[in-house]
Design a protein around this nucleic acid. Structure first.
Length: 542
RNA sequence: GGCGCCUUGGUCAAGCGGCUAAGACACGGCCCUUUCACGGCUGUAACAGGGGUUCGAUUCCCCUAGGCGUCACCA
């Protein structure tokens, strides 16, 4: 067989050589050890938590090594394109502080290793397909989908491995004349790879996350070019990651099963293969079983879920980091204020088995994150979050932003900050009772007794908004004593004889009357913010 | 079903031939405390099962089971 002639027959218009492309996309000039990574989604919709997980890892690997992180759009499946998806992807990542150094942009692209949309790289793929064909490593296949399906059924019945190989690879050695004839008849065809592997043999492979693996050789003549001339993932991956000079391919572990394709393909193409890092899946618990987090069934799988529910981007990232690396939490405790981008990640410390998504843990991480912020920082977060996600809160912010900042600032800072807020959604109920229109007086029986009425009336006459902590507390103690409550909790617990209760009970009554709640930050601070008029009114309310 | 990956408490996990098998979340108790929190202390709870190798296996090897993934002209 004259493979050279075959390749000219199939690709008459391809005149560019692989060497010219190698020259056009030269090895990147980067510092020693710099990593080039990419996020390569197909623009079929919006970002899944697993995608965020990978992008976080990609950008971290590149940026911490002085390398490059780029966005490549895998839009070779024309049937599944979704309008605006690219812009959505970029915006979503941007909202998480993940930026691309090069690659596709909403309306074009940046960088000199493009095009970054696979649909615009057809000619490039054809150059390499032609090269493979001229070397006998690729061939046209005229099998129809129906024929392939029938063959697949035969394989199933015969308990043979599915695929296009050996006796099943019917187009593998078609004579040149036959090919010419079918071409002349305008028969549609695809281009397949000619595998030389032996499935019964395995090769050692080192994954950057999973470690040493044993993978079988490939023997499947998988598809390189589809009938529309666009490449399959496998072929595009090899060509693009080589030409774009990717050094580490980070992708989900679902790709492990086709890794043999890629390994053989890189070798046949004469490309040095990049490193591979296959990440474990984030799973979801359902009826006691595990399964991959699904965008269809699980709202928390969509990255947009978090902003909608008041989780800040930083908190989500922080949580993802705890999943990404077992040493992150330890690092965080040692460095409570550093941005997570400072964390030194070791791929070898990454978890290799799939983990269950844990909302409790996310809540804890989010709560801790918010507790470390200053009041002003919380307000900045609210400024961008509330207008879209919490109209009621935003209305209050417009009305009296300073008051809200004062409220959320109570008990912040220092070594042991309050942790009242788990998400930004908690802010509204946290501040609402400071506003008359949202204040709901307590219906509790505790306030209805004559005793409670007397305490509140008495307190209204002694409280002053100018009192500082110590003075404020002394007044409460004195008040407690006057009404038959023990001013000292410890003493009361030692011997409650002769008391109606202790000073804590008195505080509880005041809190309930003034705020309508049983749990609020420090009452001294709360009442100062509420102001004299409101406090007195609520203390004396019937 | 074939093939591959994975398997330490409810969850995330440390461990890398010898440990009373860390820590975090969640849950329970106690303490601290003017209230509300924070915090401190503490408790329940794990090496999937079976064979080897070894003086000794959570750690190394094999088998079984289970979970996950994948078997497209989708990525």
């Amino acid at each position: 067989m004259d493979y050279k002639k075959l390749s000219e027959l199939i690709f008459p218009n391809v005149t560019v050589t692989p060497e010219e492309l190698e020259e056009k996309y030269p090895k990147r000039e980067l510092p020693e050890g710099a990593r080039v990574t990419r996020f390569a989604p197909s623009p079929t919709g919006f970002i899944h938590l697993g995608g965020l997980y990978q992008a976080l890892l990609d950008s971290h690997l590149a940026h911490q090594s002085g390398g490059v992180f780029f966005l490549r759009i895998e839009d070779t499946d024309r049937k599944r394109l979704v309008d605006g998806a690219i812009e959505g992807i970029i915006n979503t990542f941007s909202s998480f502080g993940i930026e691309f150094d090069e690659g596709a942009t909403a309306d074009g692209e940046k960088g000199s290793y493009g095009p970054y949309r696979q649909s615009e790289r057809k000619e490039i793929y054809h150059v390499f397909a032609k090269k493979l064909m001229s070397e006998g490593r690729a061939y046209p296949c005229f099998c129809t989908p129906e024929e392939l399906e029938a063959q697949h059924e035969r394989q199933t019945v015969a308990k043979a491995d599915p695929g296009y190989y050996g006796e099943y690879a019917v187009c593998r050695d078609l004579p040149l004349e036959e090919i010419e004839k079918r071409l002349a008849e305008n028969k549609p065809y695809i281009v397949r790879f000619r595998s030389e592997g032996d499935k019964t043999k395995t090769v050692a492979f080192k994954d950057e996350i999973k470690g040493e693996l044993l993978v079988p050789q490939n023997d499947n003549d998988f598809v390189l070019l589809k009938s529309d001339g666009l490449p399959t993932y496998h072929f595009a991956h090899a060509v693009d990651d080589h030409l774009m000079r990717t050094t580490v391919v980070v992708r989900g572990e679902e790709w492990l099963s086709t890794l043999p394709y890629h390994l053989e393909l890189f070798y046949a193409l004469g490309f040095k293969r990049p490193q591979f890092a296959h990440t474990a899946h984030i799973m979801k618990n359902e009826n006691g079983g595990k399964r991959k987090l699904s965008k269809r069934k699980d709202p928390e799988a969509a990255v947009t879920y978090y902003a909608e529910n008041g989780y800040t981007a930083e908190a989500v990232k922080e949580y993802l980091w705890t999943l990404l690396s077992s040493s992150f939490e330890e690092w965080r405790r040692a460095n409570p204020t550093l941005p997570s981008s400072e964390f030194k990640l070791k791929l070898s410390k990454m978890s290799i088995s799939g983990c269950l998504f844990d909302m409790d843990k996310l809540n804890d991480v989010s709560r801790n994150y918010l507790s470390r912020l200053s009041g002003a920082e919380v307000m900045a977060l609210l400024d961008s979050w509330a207008p879209e996600h919490d109209k009621a809160l935003y209305t209050l912010m417009e009305k009296d932003r300073a008051k809200i900042e004062a409220i959320v600032s109570v008990g912040r800072g220092g070594q042991k900050p309050r942790k009242d807020l788990t998400t930004l959604k908690d802010v509204f109920p946290y501040v609402s009772y400071f506003f008359e229109e949202h204040f709901v007086p307590s219906e509790s029986e505790k306030l209805k007794s004559p005793d409670a009425r007397a305490i509140l009336a008495d307190y209204a006459s002694v409280w002053s908004e100018n009192d500082e902590q110590t003075e404020w507390f002394e007044k409460i103690k004195a008040l407690a004593a006057r009404h038959g409550y023990c001013p000292d909790t410890k003493q009361y617990k030692a011997d409650p004889t002769g008391y109606k209760g202790h000073v804590g009970d008195v505080s509880a009554i005041i809190r309930l009357a003034v705020t309508g709640r049983e749990s609020t930050p420090d009452m001294c601070a709360v009442m100062k913010i509420l102001g004299k008029e409101t406090v007195i009114k609520r203390l004396l309310a019937e």
